[in-house]
Amino acid sequence: LVLANLVHPVPGFTAPQVLDDVIYEVTPSGSIAWQWVASEHLNELGFSPESLKLVLAAKPRNGAQAVDYLHINNMAVLGANKWHAQGDARFHPNNIIISSRESNIIAIIDRKTGKVAWTLGPDFPAIAGAHVPRAVDQIIGPHDAHLIAEGLPGAGNLLVFDNQGEAGYPRVSPGIFPHSRVLEIDPVRKQIVWQYTAANSAQTLWSFYSAFISSARRLPNGNTLIDEGMNGRFFQVTQQGDIVWEYVSPYFGSSPVGGEGGPVLTNWVYRALPVPYNWVPPETPRSEKPVAAHNAATEHLVARP
């Protein structure tokens, strides 16, 4: 499966060209065996009539030639999960989950029919604090939406990095204290069952914030690995919010993004994925030493390359 862009005119859009999101299934020989084009399913994504008018009237930004109206940034096969095992066909293991940065939508595509089988968003109530469980509240510009795999704590729940940047039709933003969240969501009840913000680590909310890119993955021990992408920071938190491992990438490269037209240096990292320890070839230089317990409220452990 390949997530790609298709630049073409789409009837109904004000813009002459649309940067459409498309999913291709490609055979080993390079033939397209199946495809899904987002603009053919706009009426299935949950837009109100008023929001759909804003979508169709969207204009290209940042000098682009085509309007990037959804910006689907993530696509994954659901895999085996308890919801399907319990008889919910929407969560068939072959179905596909996507997240749209521009529309604040997470959706599941039925692999057989191509229809959208399940959606979260685009409309949410205002954020209602930190207590859980609670109904899913305002998600903005999400990334890395996926179901936690079988065998991991929270299996079957949706894990997503909620950037809290600026997005939506109409656009919404997090206000004076922008900060990101990691949300674990029961996708059937559509309730937040666990969340992480910097406040869970006794830090100011804005000390954990990535308005774009980023990811979050559940680990076998129940901790969560978080990539605060725009700052090149990876860290691991317990269910209680203790930071037990942290690494800031020292590798910087030139980027045309974020410099008001001029090149700048950045250490941003799009996504961080955990791999099993034995995935690393045995001949790779390595060392192990125990890490002492610490108080996450007063100090951090920093991993050095």
Rank of each mutant, 00 (worst) to 15 (best):
V2P: 00
L3V: 01
P9R: 07
V10S: 05
P11E: 10
A15G: 09
Y24T: 07
I32V: 15
L45P: 01
G46A: 06
G46H: 02
F47L: 08
E50C: 01
L56H: 06
G63N: 07
V67N: 04
I72H: 03
N73Q: 12
N74Y: 15
G79C: 05
W83F: 12
H84E: 09
H84R: 13
R90V: 03
A107V: 02
I109E: 03
V116D: 01
G121I: 03
F124W: 14
Q138C: 05
I140K: 01
G141R: 03
L147V: 06
A149L: 04
A149W: 01
G154D: 11
A155P: 07
N157T: 11
I176P: 14
P178E: 07
P178L: 03
R181L: 10
L183S: 06
E184I: 14
I185S: 01
K190A: 08
F208I: 05
R217C: 06
M230K: 04
V244E: 08
P256T: 14
G261F: 09
P276R: 11
N278K: 14
W279K: 10
E283Y: 15
S287L: 00
E288I: 12
E288G: 14
A292N: 10
N295M: 04
T298K: 12
H300F: 14
A303N: 15
